[in-house]
């Protein structure tokens, strides 16, 4: 039996300033099961980051409800509990560094949660190992490259052992190797620890790794399904202004030229399809 870890029910949220109002999300419903690896796609302003902030109680819905393991995020007494269950790594790692030594930065979260010292040390070791930054343990985070900082930010969240890990475009500045390391890390956490992962990304090839993809446009959910279901729906892709993976775009062009192949998602699939042409 799958267990629902996050449930979003008819949620709307509008950003209000003195001059204007901007819709964040409107009338949104979806659920995420424990152990899911989910990707959120959509253009800037599509509502995906707003939704992420609603999931850990950073924002509270104007209308509707968000439940994390059955707890209403609007329940103020449970705010800490919810934030420790739903860990979030943001886009800009500089805003997430709190200490001048890396191991202190990573220990900060579990210390705040009242975790025992020995356990904290174990978690710091493990988190640094997981993001492959152990050798930097006693250095300062401020001298690291952007990619290295981002890995430290992820380690800092991992040390709190959240139920759900949200990565809000956290791989944007990593080099291909760093990006792969982070992606492999979250995939491993997902497979081995059954950690629920929500990956907010502009990289279509990252979304291909997910079990489920949700596509947002103008605050609404316009498509949800497996990567194959989503990327074969050219209408939804167009509407959400997504860029197709190169193999899919090339496959689409062939199909449109009347060549009978299945639309591929990966380079390998495209090569297979071309090979199978008679």
């Amino acid at each position: 039996m799958s267990e629902t870890v996050i449930s979003v029910e008819n949620v709307s949220y509008t950003y209000k300033s003195s001059q204007n109002e901007t819709v964040g999300v409107k009338n949104l419903s979806l659920s995420i099961e424990k152990g899911d690896f989910v990707a959120f796609l959509g253009h800037n302003g599509s509502g995906k980051s707003t939704l992420a902030k609603l999931l850990n109680g950073f924002l509270l819905p104007d209308e509707g409800k968000v439940f994390v393991e059955g707890t209403d995020t609007a329940d103020e007494a449970k705010t800490y509990e919810i934030r420790s269950k739903v860990g979030m790594v943001f886009q800009n790692p500089d805003n997430q560094m709190v200490a001048s030594v890396i191991e202190d930065d990573i220990a900060f979260g579990p210390e705040n949660l009242g975790v025992e010292r020995e356990e904290i040390v174990r978690r710091v070791d493990w988190a640094l190992e997981t993001v492959k930054m152990s050798e930097y343990r006693t250095r300062t985070p401020f001298k690291l490259s952007g990619g290295q900082k981002q890995r430290i930010a992820i380690a800092a969240i991992l040390a709190m052992m959240p139920e759900v890990l949200i990565l809000d475009e956290s791989t944007a500045m990593l080099d291909p190797e760093g990006r792969k390391e982070v992606l492999d890390t979250v995939k491993r956490l997902n497979k081995e620890k059954n950690m629920t992962v929500i990956l907010i990304t502009h990289y279509m090839d990252e979304a291909l790794e997910a079990d489920k993809v949700f596509v947002f446009s103008e605050g609404s959910l316009i498509k949800g399904g497996t990567p194959r279901e989503v990327f074969s729906d050219f209408g939804a892709v167009e509407k959400a202004k997504l860029l197709l993976p190169v193999a899919t775009a090339a496959g689409k062009a062939l199909v449109e030229a009347g060549i009978k192949i299945n639309v591929p998602l990966t380079d390998e699939e495209l090569a297979e399809e071309i090979c199978s042409l008679k």
């Binding site: 959509g42 253009h43 800037n44 886009q91 475009e169 944007a172 500045m173 502009h202 279509m204 202004k241 997504l242 860029l243």
Partner: peptide, 13 residues
């Protein structure tokens, strides 16, 4: 320096 990093697909294009 990394002119398209962090942009959404439309912004990248």
């Amino acid at each position: 320096d990394e002119p398209t990093a962090g942009l959404d697909p439309a912004g990248k294009r």
